[in-house]
Simulated assay, not measured.
Amino acid sequence: MTRIIYQNAAGQRREIDAPAGRSVMQVAVANGVDGIVAECGGSAMCATCHVYVEAGPVDKLPAPNAVEDEMLESTAEPRMPNSRLSCQLVIGPELDGLVVRLPERQV
C-alpha cells in the first residue's frame, strides 16, 4: 500500500494507505475525505477534485495533460503552480508519502 496524506484547509492531516492503480480522488471519496467533491466521477470534466500538491515525491508525478491543464483554469479556488486534479493522479508505490492540500472550497 502507498501512503497518501490529505491535509485540509485548516491544516489537519489524514493519512490513508491507498492501493495501487486508484486515483488520489478515488481513495479520498472511498474514505470519506471531506473537501473532494468529485462531481464528474474522475473524468477530468469538473475540477471539483482540485488539490495542491504540497510535499513528498512530487517529482514522480506525471505532468498535467492538456485536458487537466484546461480544467485547472476553472477551479473554485485559485490555480497555483502546484495545483492538480486528484482524479488524474494515479497511485503507485513511487508516490508513497505524497501530501495533497485541499482547497477551502471546490464549488
Score class of each variant (00 low, 15 high):
Met1Asp: 14
Arg3Val: 13
Ile4Ala: 08
Tyr6Leu: 09
Ala9Thr: 06
Ala10Gly: 13
Gly11Leu: 06
Gln12Trp: 03
Gln12Cys: 12
Arg13Asp: 12
Glu15Pro: 07
Glu15Gly: 14
Ile16Met: 10
Ile16Ala: 14
Ala18Ser: 14
Ala18Cys: 13
Ala18Phe: 08
Pro19Arg: 15
Pro19Leu: 15
Gly21Leu: 04
Arg22Ile: 00
Val24Leu: 05
Val24Gly: 05
Met25Gly: 08
Gln26Phe: 01
Val27Tyr: 02
Val27Asp: 05
Ala28Lys: 05
Ala28Tyr: 01
Val29Ser: 03
Ala30Lys: 06
Ala30Val: 00
Asn31Val: 00
Val33Glu: 10
Gly35Leu: 04
Gly35Gln: 06
Gly35Ile: 02
Ile36Glu: 05
Glu39Arg: 01
Glu39Gln: 09
Gly42Pro: 10
Ala44Gln: 07
Ala44Lys: 07
Met45Arg: 10
Cys46Glu: 02
Cys49Tyr: 01
Val51Tyr: 01
Tyr52Cys: 13
Tyr52Ser: 11
Val53Gly: 10
Val53Asn: 11
Val53Thr: 06
Glu54Asn: 12
Glu54Ala: 15
Gly56Met: 06
Gly56Arg: 03
Gly56Cys: 09
Pro57Met: 04
Pro57Asp: 07
Val58Pro: 10
Val58Phe: 09
Asp59Lys: 14
Asp59Ala: 15
Asp59Glu: 15
Asp59Thr: 13
Lys60Arg: 15
Leu61Cys: 09
Leu61Arg: 09
Pro62Asp: 13
Ala63Phe: 01
Pro64Val: 03
Asn65Ser: 04
Asn65Gln: 04
Ala66Gln: 12
Val67Pro: 00
Asp69Pro: 00
Leu72Pro: 00
Leu72Ile: 00
Glu73Lys: 10
Ala76Glu: 11
Met80Leu: 15
Asn82Lys: 08
Asn82Asp: 10
Ser83Gln: 10
Ser83Asp: 08
Leu85Gln: 04
Ser86Asn: 02
Cys87Met: 05
Gln88Leu: 11
Leu89Asn: 11
Leu89Trp: 01
Gly92His: 13
Pro93Lys: 14
Glu94Asn: 04
Glu94Tyr: 00
Asp96Gln: 05
Gly97Leu: 12
Leu98Pro: 05
Val99Ile: 15
Val99Arg: 14
Val100Leu: 10
Arg101Val: 08
Leu102Lys: 08
Pro103Trp: 04
Pro103Tyr: 03
Glu104Asn: 09
Glu104Pro: 03
Arg105Asp: 13
Arg105Gly: 11
Val107Pro: 02
Val107Leu: 14
